[in-house]
Amino acid sequence: MSEAPKQTSENKLKYRLGWGLIALLLISAVGLVVLKPAPMSVTQRAQALDAQIRCPACEGQSVLDSSAPIAVDIRAEVLNDIQAGQSNSEIMTTLEGAYGSGISLAPTGSALASLAWWFPIGLIVAVILFLIGVGLKRRLQPENDVVIETKSDKRSQNYRVLLGAKRKLLFRGALFSFALAALYVAGLMSGLKLPGAKTSSNEIPVSKLLTDARNLSADNQEQAALAMYSQVLSIDPKNAYALSEQGWLVSQSGEANHDPALVEIGQAEIQKAIEIDSNLAEARLYLGTILFNDDDQPSQAVVQFQSFLADHPSQELIDAGRSQIILAYKADNKTPPLK
């Protein structure tokens, strides 16, 4: 008897904690829907999708993790399709149409499709718990025609108290499941990643993107290289190297297509790169070349080439710019520092 008050307060505490937890879950669910996280950027979307595409030329790798030529092609294609306004499922359907459904690493995890899988499971659990609760309640209802013997009366009452507690527990279990399901649905609605869905949380390192881009550029695949540089810039908008390479590729394509506006855009990007990193040899070389070739300003070009040579460029880079540098110095009536 002396333990009774303690037990009651303990029960009360448990009772409150239980309801508190359910309330917390429901509030979180509402909160998730109201405070949606920011939508993914194009690059983030592309990377999340790349992580779900199997590299067709490699064993068990996603195209995000692979540097196989076809993986690079698929990454560029995905980025291109996203920029063209295609949805993830449209992009996957196209790829599955060419490679078969094996191209997909995870069941195409649209939030709705996962909901179709997970929501019924939560619902079934909740319903079962609820029904058990109802069944127990019925069993506990006193039946008039039953005569209870005095001796077993107390024991039977104890049993009922126990069952009553169980029923309450189960009822709260059912509610808890509902609240959990609500939280889950809210999470899906607000675009959170699913447990078990294979999405890569680690972004491709910028260095890997830059290496890929350099290789593509060396392979004369300027468009794909441009896509890679813009990926780098969306991760790190102040990456001077990516800016200057992108600017150079843009100005080159402008020159090839006789489009001075493109050359200007490229030049502006290279200048921006120099503002960020004034010791970037590549940017100085590119800017000097454009100033000399397109703008016909040899003296300004020479200023850039002087900075270029002062930045200790690699021999390869010097060789690439050698003829332009010599021509610019001569046009400016100066002695070229190179032979």
């Binding site: 067709p56 092609d73 698929i74 560029a76 294609e77 291109n80 790829l95 468009q223």
Partner: peptide, 14 residues
């Protein structure tokens, strides 16, 4: 196929 778009449309691996 500079961008690789023909290869991906045909489902080429290597």
């Amino acid at each position: 196929d500079t961008t690789g778009s023909i290869a991906t449309a045909f489902g080429v691996s290597e």
